[in-house]
Amino acid sequence: MSGPPSADLLELRDVTVRFGGLLALDAVSLTAPRGRVTGVIGPNGAGKTTLFNVVCGFVRPESGELRWRGARLGRHRPHDLTRLGIGRTLQGLGLFQGLTVLENVMVGADRHARTGFASGLLALPRADRDEAALRGRALARLEELGIADTAARPPGGLPYGVQKRVALARALVCEPDLLMLDEPAAGLSAAEIDEIAELIRGMRGGPGVVLVEHHMDLVMGVCDRVVVLDFGKVIAAGEPAGIRDDPAVLDAYLGEEVRHDEGTA
């Protein structure tokens, strides 16, 4: 964990992505500092997922640059993420249905496993020790999220909210410096969203968090800073309270109905 202590972990500078004639991201700049929660909101098709995919290395920007701990990230690939210290959850669940809950989390703990190709193959003692350490760390995460009792079960039969926690535990187990959450509230009940909000708030001061979310209450409730995208452009950025009242945001994203609600509330 090197790098200046209070610097921005992740920084996007004028990132532009074009799919054919479609401008998916138009000179988007964004920073995600350590210990704080940065929200990214915007209507469908605004470029939120593209932004995620740029960070993850699925999509290469046409211009602009991506910086991680001050250094430029050029040719990183998705499998480099955990090694860099970036954990992410996926839209939906993205759990391995053929593995147990504990094994699902252990796959995410890969960053700390030092098992080489050959030693793992020959099941040398070091690999065994690593495996035990990995298992311990994964179990600890499950305990923190209050789902240790599901460790030996396949995730498929568990309630959706619990599966979301498994996905979160998997993203957290590599002790990421930056955690990227892709719509963590999708498909959850109001009570489960409150629990997720509590979990995210509890991370403040720990890793940097980037939260892409539709659910306004969650975004407003947990984010320190919110960036609003519309048609690939950043149309507003700032504190949640300021964003809530920004006319450009209301027009682009929240729409008439919400403004009406705000007026009557």
Binding site: C56, R77, P78, H79, D80, L81, T82, R83, R88, L90, G94, L95, F96, Q97, G98, L99, E103, M106, V107, G108, D110, R111, R170, C174
Partner: peptide, 18 residues
């Protein structure tokens, strides 16, 4: 575990660093 993860869901496994 990585072998199994890669076999079950390669795209997700990739994101986990496999």
């Amino acid at each position: 575990l990585k072998l199994r993860a890669a076999a079950f869901a390669p795209e997700i496994a990739r994101l986990q660093g496999v």
